[in-house]
């Protein structure tokens, strides 16, 4: 006797029914979502593709110089040369647009959810298992309903990516806000913050490093999902890799993979640079100052500083 014969729980059937029900009854909603996502994802891609590769490369290099430093700028320069040399510019930009678009939507939804979780234990208790579910479900599974609801192409690719990539920003926003020191929150309240002021002036700024880690993780997850999403026609570098697999073309697969790695490093370094609380001057501030012929701002060292107040107090 096979136990599988007498226990019958047909979850698969239920899910299919549910998907069918949604398809039959919520078509206008799905169309609206599709239009909105399509507008963001395709709009971004078309814009980026319309820019001359050299101009876009120059912009990225300058961004690297401003946010990270000259070494990273050199790295970006070499990467751009490599991508153009491999003839992978268009798929790379397509992937970049997809990742940025999907991350943008994931943040748009995930960040407020994270804040709500931090503010209420009930919301946290409800959302946490959903996040666990979203993260542990194999990413391929998302492709099926996404394709059924939205057909093939960039829009379902983006949506599957959003679902897969959202949990980190939700989790780390929640964690970041909850980890703000009690006394800082008390200070905010003791000086007369309203709830909203407390959030904007104390909790979010102090949670920023953690939130940015979440943003960074969400972007990285989007990138990994974008490759998988090429199976439902999301295009981009994922498509190159997929073609490599299908034709057992090691070289093509490697080139596509290299492109993904370059996009990953680029996005990672740039987003991380926004998570730091900047206290020293950036490159451009120094450059502008140098151009105006001003003196370097006298930076006070620790030892000098601890002298000043005592002198002033005595």
């Amino acid at each position: 006797m096979n136990p599988e014969d007498w226990i019958e729980i047909n979850i698969g059937q239920w899910v299919e029914n549910l998907v069918g029900f949604i398809l039959d009854n919520f078509e206008p909603v799905l169309d609206a979502i599709s239009a909105a996502i399509g507008f963001v994802a395709l709009g971004l891609e078309n814009t980026l593709l319309a820019i001359n590769p050299l101009v876009l490369s120059a912009i990225l290099i300058l961004l690297a110089l401003w946010r990270v430093g000259w070494k990273f700028a050199v790295f970006v320069l070499l990467s751009m040369v490599l991508i153009l040399g491999m003839n992978l510019w268009d798929p790379t930009i397509s992937t970049l647009a997809l990742v940025v678009g999907a991350s943008f939507v994931a943040l748009l939804v995930g960040f407020p959810v994270g804040v709500a979780m931090a503010k209420s234990d009930t919301v946290e208790a409800l959302v946490r298992p959903i996040l666990d579910f979203m993260q542990t479900m194999p990413p391929f599974v998302y492709l099926i309903p996404a394709a059924m609801f939205f057909g093939l192409g960039k829009v379902p690719g983006t949506i599957a990516t959003v679902v897969f990539a959202m949990p980190p920003v939700v989790r780390l926003t929640n964690l970041g806000i909850r980890q703000v020191s009690v006394e800082n929150v008390e200070a905010g309240r003791a000086f007369g913050c309203t709830d909203r002021q407390l959030l904007y002036k104390v909790q979010l700024p102090l949670a920023l490093p953690s939130i940015m880690t979440g943003v960074n993780q969400t972007i990285m997850l989007s990138l990994s999902m974008v490759v998988i999403a090429s199976m439902i026609g999301a295009g981009g570098l994922g498509n190159v890799v997929l073609t490599g697999i299908q034709r057992l073309n090691v070289g093509l697969g490697f080139e596509g993979g290299l492109g993904v790695v370059i996009v990953a490093i680029l996005l990672d370094r740039l987003t991380q640079s926004f998570g730091r609380i900047r206290t020293s001057e950036g490159f451009f501030t120094r450059l502008m100052r140098a151009l105006k012929g001003e003196q370097q701002k006298p930076t006070v060292t620790g030892s000098e500083q601890s002298e000043t107040p005592r002198r002033a107090a005595s």
Partner: peptide, 22 residues
């Protein structure tokens, strides 16, 4: 209460509780 906190009383904390980003 918020008005009283803003006008009448201020607080100093053991761990200083300064805002590091400001």
């Amino acid at each position: 209460l918020i008005q009283v906190r803003r006008k009448e009383m201020a607080m100093v904390f053991q761990s200083f509780a300064l805002m590091p980003h400001q």
